[in-house]
Design a protein around this nucleic acid. Structure first.
Lengths: 154, 154
DNA sequence: CATCACGCACTATTTAAAGTTACATGAAAC
DNA sequence: GTTTCATGTAACTTTAAATAGTGCGTGATG
């Protein structure tokens, strides 16, 4: 199957915005993500509506983080991009008349729902502040005294 | 993404085979599953190699269960069809140079791996015998004194 | 030896994500 | 005020993976 990478992508973009401080344009973010500016606008649109980021038009405009990183969890981001499906497998038929299939679906659904619940709970435990801290730890480990910018996409 | 329904489908087919007793041809199974005989052969191929089902050519041939249903778990079936990916989301890039992306991927991977482990553990707990029992319970609930065949795909 | 049924390689269709184009809107600079 | 920059959004195209389908080979039964 083709795996959805929007969550991964949005988290990536948000952390870059946070590192930058100043507003970043869709084009800048798209370059960092090796994707298209419109894709950035699309995915960040949900986060703007949810109040996690702010967008400004015109000269000097672009995207900025609207909340402290410690106040945004991966779960928040997941919700803001529209809660895409988490499980790669599904039932063959939604409302099957066949009782065999109903028994199979019931067993699978139970397991999938448990796994989804666990996943969402884990997402809710991780804030962007923690991800940023992890990033800085990795940067410190890579070289002794770097500046931040030198080590982004280098 | 497009969700994989092979596991659901194979479990369905296996239970029908078990109910039948006699060998069932790919065509019969395909009709019950509303799919193509070749799809049946493909998906059951892995289970044949793993020793869970047996296939016979020629007149009177077809597919039969090769082990007691109590000895086959959903996990066994999952393994036999090639362990398709369970999670619908993935990382944007596999081996990113960007440290921000590495931090994001690490956090996501941890969560996904936990969810997968839980899912596989649940699969391992459910045998086909239990699914068959659930099916019979559903059939009993639907009408007082049915025969098995009347209530498959009716 | 004719028929039945699986085995396999190959091609076609389908679906959702991702990419792209086009154009409208609004803000800042000059 | 008009030019430039940047977002907002709709529509369309491309792409990746599952699923569907075709054709032919092989072996077993009658």
């Amino acid at each position: 199957m083709k795996r959805d990478s929007r969550l991964s992508g949005v988290l990536h973009v948000l952390l870059h915005m946070a590192e930058q401080g100043a507003p970043m344009t869709s084009e800048q973010l798209a370059k960092a993500m090796q994707t298209h500016p419109v894709v950035i606008r699309r995915t960040l649109g949900g986060l703007r509506d949810a109040g996690f980021v702010h967008s400004e038009k015109g000269h000097g405009g672009g995207w900025t983080i609207a909340k402290p990183l410690a106040d945004i969890t991966m779960r928040d981001v997941y919700d803001a991009i529209g809660r895409p499906g988490l499980m790669a497998m599904g039932n063959r038929t939604e409302a099957p008349g066949c009782l065999v299939e109903r028994a199979v679906n019931a067993a699978l659904d139970t397991s999938f729902q448990e796994a989804e619940a666990l996943l969402l709970a884990r997402f809710a435990e991780v804030t962007l502040a923690e991800l940023a801290a992890d990033f800085h730890a990795r940067m410190a480990a890579r070289s002794p005294s770097p500046t931040t910018q030198e080590h982004i996409h280098g």
